[in-house]
Design a protein around this nucleic acid. Structure first.
Lengths: 248, 248
DNA sequence: CTAAAAACCGCAAAAAGTTGCAATTTTTCT
DNA sequence: AGAAAAATTGCAACTTTTTGCGGTTTTTAG
């Protein structure tokens, strides 16, 4: 096998798998790892791959996760749009504090006249920017991790209300375990929020679906509506629809 | 799995869930926790995540408020420095929400170990950034004008505590009328704050001195300490010193 | 205050990389 | 064609990086 051929093969593998191991290539093409390394170094010098210890990465690999923030931003805007369609004038809304919820808060139509109840500092801040809606903050000790009021006072306050709708971002959710999280205080709070609301709406980018974390918040049967950035007929969502949740 | 891949995976998880546990990652990627820790440390050094005991946090999550440089920033920093000298470990601090107070909050020494009680969203946010202090938010309806919780609940909550010190920005103050403001809700709140504290400290840039607004909060005799950006012997401050206030 | 979890430290083994060199192949030039 | 030059390749010795592990210290939470 010629050098050029070999390098072409390597490039194909890289673009195919996003990453290659020197050892693998060596075995596949039956040349020494030294040769592979020299090839990878050349390709790296030509800027065709990114050389790392143990192999090489595709050039597009870098921007892949650097861009993810913006990328997620777009997804969250789609989710926000759908969520807003659920809000009507006069509603009493219990709101969580994740980035998805905050994105939604920024998109509220100016004309909406609702009351928002939240324990999240960033969410309260966003809602407070809105010209017509009213904001009630549930005070208590602030958890630094999540910028959310946690503790008995907040819980009992939430339990004393009955909201029309609860809009909540989540960290992880799957068919078996329902909605899960890894922060005890947050779990307690979210449980209380769900109990205090008539309509229970969960916002989540699809990437968070089918993942699990330590502590259970509730089963899927507790949830009324699931909003993701996907089309409501997307096959990923099918099992959730089957378990009785309305998909938006 | 290559090191870079692994770190990319970690970054993805962080941006997805806002926080990760070393133990979880270790189990997911099938490497030792030491390796995860080393990765997290590297990512933290590169400024991509925030390392904490047990895992790491997303960096972007904490940056909702873009630092809007306030008017008279330099003057307020001088005031902040002076105010900080009053704070000692273990203190229970009742804090207002003006820009001056927020500037002070940003300058708190990392070692300070105090508890802050506030009804201001921006102030709570700043205090929550501090590594060692505890933050308690006084929840209630949020006044949009001032981003502060106002209302009966907040008032009664404040009245139920006794703070060591009250740090409060003001809108107007003069010899004759004392401290005045033009927002009824804020006035009520500030009155309650002053009553609930032992040491009453007022922060104000000199521009606000010798001006009056509609509603009276309290007379000068209620105030213990006045902090401005001026030297404490400045003639502008003389009448206030004469009326019994300590000038810093 | 105490026990458990996490972080740190140093070490050693394994994996990957580097370098120099000799053997082989390819290219070039007459 | 055939010899010299150049490029390529594999190998061996050595260096560097990465990783996991045991023991100790620090931090956290009850």
């Amino acid at each position: 096998m010629l050098k050029k051929e070999r390098q072409a093969y390597i490039l194909r593998q890289v673009s195919l798998h996003n990453s290659v191991l020197s050892a693998d290539l060596s075995a596949e093409i039956q040349v020494s790892e030294d040769t592979i390394r020299r090839d990878l170094n050349e390709l790296a010098e030509e800027g065709k791959v990114i050389k790392v210890h143990g192999g090489a990465l595709s050039k597009s690999f870098n921007s892949f996760y650097l861009r993810s923030d913006v990328f997620h931003g777009e997804q969250k805007k789609i989710i926000g749009q759908k969520a807003i369609s659920l809000l009507k004038d006069g509603m009493f809304v219990l709101s969580g504090g994740g980035t998805t919820v905050i994105e939604t808060a920024r998109m509220l139509p100016e004309t909406l006249l609702a009351t928002f109840l939240t324990g999240s500092i960033p969410a309260a801040y966003e809602y407070a920017q809105h010209p017509n809606s009213e904001v009630i903050f549930i005070g208590d000790k602030i958890s630094k991790k999540s910028q959310i009021a946690v503790g008995g006072e907040a819980i009992s306050k939430i339990k004393s209300v009955k909201a029309d709708i609860c809009i909540m971002g989540i960290n992880a959710m799957d068919i078996e375990n329902g909605i899960t999280d890894n922060d005890w205080d947050v779990v307690i709070l979210k449980k209380a929020m769900l109990e205090a609301s008539n309509l229970k709406v969960v916002l989540s980018i699809s990437e968070k679906l089918n993942s699990v974390q330590r502590i259970k918040i509730c089963g899927l049967n507790q949830i009324d509506i699931l909003i993701t950035e996907l089309d409501k007929d997307d096959p990923i969502l099918a099992p959730y629809r089957d378990s009785g949740i309305t998909i938006l």
